[in-house]
Design a protein around this nucleic acid. Structure first.
Lengths: 189, 189
DNA sequence: TAGTTTAATTAAACACTGGTCAATAAAAAG
DNA sequence: CTTTTTATTGACCAGTGTTTAATTAAACTA
């Protein structure tokens, strides 16, 4: 038997996360097994449990960086040279664009109902949402209320979660996204 | 052995669907196994496959009647004695109420990404949506465009799909639902 | 009534899943 | 060189959806 590999190829959390991210992206959380991840790396599935407590935790470690990426995207928009009104719609659009260019991540971040995963993914969505809401209030010079930010978020979420299920890319639904954003913003002013 | 039961208790599709509906309602699609359904009925799990090709087909048979129920709910609102403006918000509210009082069905109807199930659920959502959109156009005396009905639907869908994930009942989020509906309708006037 | 066909149920089996764990050996520490 | 720590393995568990040969109750036929 061979109960240990040479150190040159020792497994790391990052290696696992990279393999997992790719597989999850292709097939989604439920459709990827720990054994598939392990075999993509050339290790036995048991070894994954040395680095991560379970599938949900591995998943959460991955998704954590995706929340940061979303924050980054929104920050980038905020830093652009543009009037607040323009920025406002760009922020909403950025949210949609993020969701549709990271479909399976978005699914996991905001959509997955798996109890096991939900217990890990709690702060993530909240913090990202807070940042998002704060931006809206600022950009609108307090004309958008906290109540309204929630409705705006949910309305965007509806768009993204619907188009997450089909094969269309962001580019293909871009104009629909624009008109949805316009629709949403009409409520606020 | 006992490879056959007395005819008095022969298994029917309806019996299976009733047991399944109850279990799915309690725990959701993924969390209910064919073995659980069978044992709730007092039969071996193999027998279910005599009546349904597989789990997804059993679920779809169930969900089909739920699309009809949603149509019914919307129809009922349309038949009420009320001005069109009031009806409009009642229709939107009815959609949310339906979604949150039939969470796992809603998930299946509009949310589930499972390829197996999606291949079954195709006409259902489209037909229900058409009916919904038609109502909106009528009630608004054509002031709501087809484009807008889609945004309205997606915005409602966002609300429902978000609250589908948590344990809250419709009653508990009723006031939030009201304010979301108001938010949406502000875009249309 | 006896023999045959059909329909429905069963248990065993298959190939999976997430997860645990004793055994093991490579690497590090003493 | 010995001991300890660390990482890997593969067998194992309980569970999943699904298939299937065997079985038999019921319906049909002669």
């Amino acid at each position: 038997m061979s109960p240990r590999k040479a150190v040159a190829q020792e497994l790391t959390q990052d290696m696992v996360m990279m393999a997992a991210r790719e597989l999850f992206r292709e097939k989604g959380y439920q459709q990827v097994s720990m054994r598939q991840i392990a075999s993509a790396l050339g290790y036995s599935h048991g070894s994954l449990y040395y680095h991560f407590k379970n599938k949900a935790e591995l998943f959460y470690a991955m998704i954590e960086t995706d929340f940061k990426l979303l924050d980054q995207w929104l920050d980038d928009v905020m830093k652009r040279e543009m009037d607040d009104k323009g920025k406002l719609s760009e922020v909403l659009l950025a949210f949609i664009r993020f969701g549709l260019t990271h479909k399976s991540q978005y699914e996991m971040m905001f959509l997955l109902a798996d109890e096991e995963v939900k217990s890990y993914v709690n702060k993530g969505p909240n913090e990202s949402y807070e940042k998002f809401a704060q931006s809206l209030v600022e950009l609108s010079k307090r004309e958008i209320t906290i109540q309204q930010t929630w409705s705006i978020f949910l309305s965007l979420h509806g768009f993204v979660s619907h188009y997450c299920r089909c094969d269309e890319t962001f580019e293909e639904v871009k104009s629909l996204a624009h008109s949805h954003v316009n629709f949403i913003l009409k409520s606020t002013g």
